[in-house]
Design a protein around this nucleic acid. Structure first.
Lengths: 183, 183
DNA sequence: CTGGTTTGGTCAGCGTCGTTGACACATTTT
DNA sequence: AAAATGTGTCAACGACGCTGACCAAACCAG
């Protein structure tokens, strides 16, 4: 196993900086390579542990992450239509149904017929749904607050900027809608 | 549960202040509430879009995210044992097997018998595996670099600090191991 | 009014990726 | 020789994505 790339193998066939700072280019690329791999690690571990607390609560209720997302986004935008929720979640109607139907049946989410358009089913949380959503929220709140405290307020701002940058245009638009509700 | 914060109601006051502890307390709580809900949104959208690019490549090859993780961590730590990989991924042996076996059969990952302990199977990427891992890496690299550029270097540092804070103690220890290999 | 579109629901089936439980086998340790 | 360890594997299950097909109610345009 000699020919094996030692560790994070140094950028092999990099597009060698044309012209000037060859050595500098190598270093920069190398740095960025490690930097990026670290970002991958951080996102994997961080996201996993971020969701772990809520997952635990959900498991006790026989639910999963998908249920949480519905509770979260319906809570964030009461009166949202099924179609809009589908757009935010980026899943199919069938996938949503498997999770939404039980939530309605178990009285976590309420559906009311739209006033202007009676085909629409406007979704909102029942008190029971609000209570669960809040419980999940509190669990994650503690976790995130710990991270925020450790990192400091300036880091938090940076975190937000980078995460926002990781979102695609569609997600950014949807986030807009979430931040200023009615518009 | 009347005490439940109605919706995401807009922070009424603002940094009001030092004179009215009660009102200020309310504002701070609201702020944090919104702040935290925003963090949830950012993590959901950001992580999803971060992985989307690689997912696409993987789908073309009939693979999933789990395959990518194996390629990533084996690439990051060539010669890693199956047990250590299980520890990093935090999944069961059976779950790993379903993904690792095909990767070995399709010549992406190589297994060599441990020298000191011949029960161990040391994992490393074959050239084919390295090529795929690099392709996936490059795709994510572009995406992350865009976010980094938009956010600026200072934000990047903050991002790292917060993500690190989101990790639990176990993940932190494992990240340690990834950053300084043999150590 | 009629016909087409939109919104939402549902059945049926598939794939990935996580889980548990139970065994098997080689190797190392005691 | 017996016990513990590292790995592999069979079987079954659950959560959560997807596609395709079809239906009903409501809206909308000609």
């Amino acid at each position: 196993m000699p020919a094996m790339p030692e560790r994070t193998d140094p950028p092999s066939g990099e597009p060698a900086a044309t012209g000037a700072p060859v050595a500098a280019g190598r270093n920069l690329l190398f740095l960025r390579e490690e930097e990026l791999r670290l970002a991958q690690d951080l996102l994997f571990f961080g996201y996993r542990d971020f969701t772990a607390g809520a997952d635990q609560i959900l498991a006790e209720l026989g639910m999963g992450r998908a249920h949480h997302r519905v509770l979260h986004f319906v809570g964030r935008r009461p009166g949202i239509t099924v179609g809009a929720l589908l757009g935010i979640l980026g899943i199919t109607k069938q996938s949503l149904a498997r999770v939404l139907t039980p939530l309605v049946e178990q009285d976590y989410v309420r559906q009311t017929t739209g006033r202007s358009d009676r085909r629409q089913r406007l979704l909102s949380l029942t008190p029971k749904g609000q209570a669960l959503e809040r419980r999940l929220f509190e669990r994650q709140r503690e976790w995130v607050m710990r991270a925020y405290r450790e990192a400091g307020p300036q880091a938090v701002e940076g975190f937000r900027r980078v995460m926002h940058g990781l979102m695609g245009p569609e997600a950014r638009a949807q986030l807009e809608g979430l931040e200023r509700p009615k518009g």
